[in-house]
């Protein structure tokens, strides 16, 4: 697995949302993109997964230029995104939501039991709720379902967009522990987070985005101790920075 974004530009109409971002994600890493609202984090993820059109630059996955491939082909190649706000299909059961996560796989039948088992081991709560409609789950359970559904596609790289959004502190810990566990079992992770503290603690490397540009790139542990980053994104920087 090797994901590389080179000088990416993305426009919404005439407005340029991404102004030349370059990001590299290596096999086995957790890489995080942090930054304020509107910095372009979500747009970057959506462009990698093919929901937004590239207007300049390119995206390479395992050496192949995927900048213009349709979204479903990128899923087949091994790029799976867990969208912001979870994107659960509310009228479908938990099981149906998981099943549709493997929609494109050729040998779905053979893999299904094994992958369901893996997801249920990571998230025992989902197993208790297989027949329940996705829309009736709590926020934390929906996040578990969204991540589980993403894993059903057997991704090489999992793109996570704000997995901690709207969750209670306990649940946030829980979700981040599971993200770490998924990474340890071999899935590369690209994580977008507003909860910079958690993201930097878990990640290997990080990129700081501001208004569509990368303003800093470093090892996550270095950024945790960077006074400017602490002041801007961790909310505890004032006393250290002085």
């Amino acid at each position: 697995m090797h994901l590389e974004i080179k000088d990416l530009h993305v426009h919404y109409g005439k407005i340029e949302a991404i102004k030349g971002i370059s990001v590299v994600v290596e096999q086995g890493e957790i890489v995080t993109l942090i930054g304020a609202n509107g910095a372009g984090k979500t747009t970057t993820l959506k462009t990698i997964s093919g929901l937004r059109k590239v207007t300049g630059g390119s995206i390479f996955f395992d050496g192949q230029d995927i900048s213009n491939l349709p979204a479903h082909e990128r899923v087949e190649m091994g790029i799976s995104q867990v969208p912001e706000g979870r994107g659960i299909f509310p009228g479908m059961t938990v099981l149906e939501n998981l099943e549709i996560g493997k929609y494109f796989r050729k040998n779905r039948g053979a893999e299904m039991a094994e992958d369901l088992d893996r997801v249920y081991t990571l998230f025992p709560r989902l197993k208790e709720r297989t027949g329940q409609s996705g829309g009736t789950l709590s926020g934390g359970e929906q996040q578990m379902l969204a991540i589980g559904r993403g894993l059903m596609a057997r991704p090489k790289v999992l793109l996570l967009d704000e997995p901690s959004m709207g969750l209670a502190p306990m649940m946030i810990q829980n979700i981040f522990n599971i993200i770490t566990e998924i990474n340890k079992s071999g899935t590369t992770i690209l994580l977008v987070e507003q909860n910079a503290q958690q993201a930097l603690q878990r990640a290997d490397r990080a990129y700081v985005l501001e208004t569509g540009k990368v303003v800093k790139e470093a090892k996550a542990s270095d950024l945790l101790n960077d006074p400017a980053v602490r002041a801007a994104y961790l909310g505890t920087g004032a006393e250290h920075a002085v």
Partner: peptide, 14 residues
């Protein structure tokens, strides 16, 4: 019909 974007993320050929 529930969400076009999320369906595409599932690998569905829209």
């Amino acid at each position: 019909s529930m969400s076009e974007e999320n369906s595409r993320l599932m690998g569905i050929n829209l």
